[in-house]
Design a protein around this nucleic acid. Sequence first.
DNA 1: TCTCAAGTTGACGTAAAGGGTACGCTAGCG
DNA 2: CGCTAGCGTACCCTTTACGTCAACTTGAGA
Lengths: 155, 155
Amino acid sequence: MEKENSYRIGELVRMFGITSRTVRFYEELGLIESMDRDGSEHRRYSERNVIRIKRIQQLKDYGLTLSEISALFEMARVDRTGATVREGLAVKYRQKLDEALRRRAQLDAYIEDLSWHVEQVERANDFFECPGASCASCRWAERCDVRLLVKRPPS
Amino acid sequence: MEKENSYRIGELVRMFGITSRTVRFYEELGLIESMDRDGSEHRRYSERNVIRIKRIQQLKDYGLTLSEISALFEMARVDRTGATVREGLAVKYRQKLDEALRRRAQLDAYIEDLSWHVEQVERANDFFECPGASCASCRWAERCDVRLLVKRPPS
DNA sequence: TCTCAAGTTGACGTAAAGGGTACGCTAGCG
DNA sequence: CGCTAGCGTACCCTTTACGTCAACTTGAGA
């Protein structure tokens, strides 16, 4: 029975659509335990390693950085009951959620603002570049306060 | 009448809340025309320069990168009628808008997903780390497909 | 046995938008 | 004349998650 579930690095690459550099990088960071490549020079990966990588990907998707992920794994290593991991995860998740909600609000304002600008710029057929403070007809000045584009005054 | 509107770099710093390093950086990139510091070793900034910086800040707020901004300014330099600038701006704005809308959709999915996870993790009082494929009780497996945390089977 | 794809280490590079530091010069006020 | 805040250049550093390259070495199929 020769090590039933044993993957080579190339297989992981195809599995996850990542590069071998990435896998080795994760190992460098200690995110993946260094495989015992007993006898061989080539790394071998177990089912556990595969799960690890999946976890990393999920946590990355949730916006955790690699060092945050690393910290979580370290917690898990220290405390086998999983209590602190759970707690740490809850805190992190909630942080990320708050952050996401904040970003969403910002994004909405941004979208509204930008929509307005798109409309103005696309509808315009008589804009000119405003010369600055001396321009008397910056009618959009309160909205578009740098007067990037200003409607030409009716001549 | 000695050069009426002439600012020193420190004044810009106070005006915009940026650092002098930033102003010089913009000059390096060609975003601000190199000031003629005639006679002096110190830079002097005109009203035009001030407007430029305001513009840079606005465009940055709209998500353009410095190199995109640079490209727009280059357009403006070449074409004084402003037609290509307007067009370029419209294209960029629309791009950024699409991008923002896409990001918002992603963010929504992310928020929903994360909310679910927060709820699960916070409500749980008996999670354990799933050992992987051999675990028979991954009841959330279809949703939480990497089985980061799985409910402990009732013993 | 040969071959060549696949794997190895290590060092250095990348993007973005400046920040930080060292060290010297200058403007302008009293 | 002297002081000192302000300004100058020049250089490296930051963060994150890898990419890229060079120069080998290994392993598995024919």
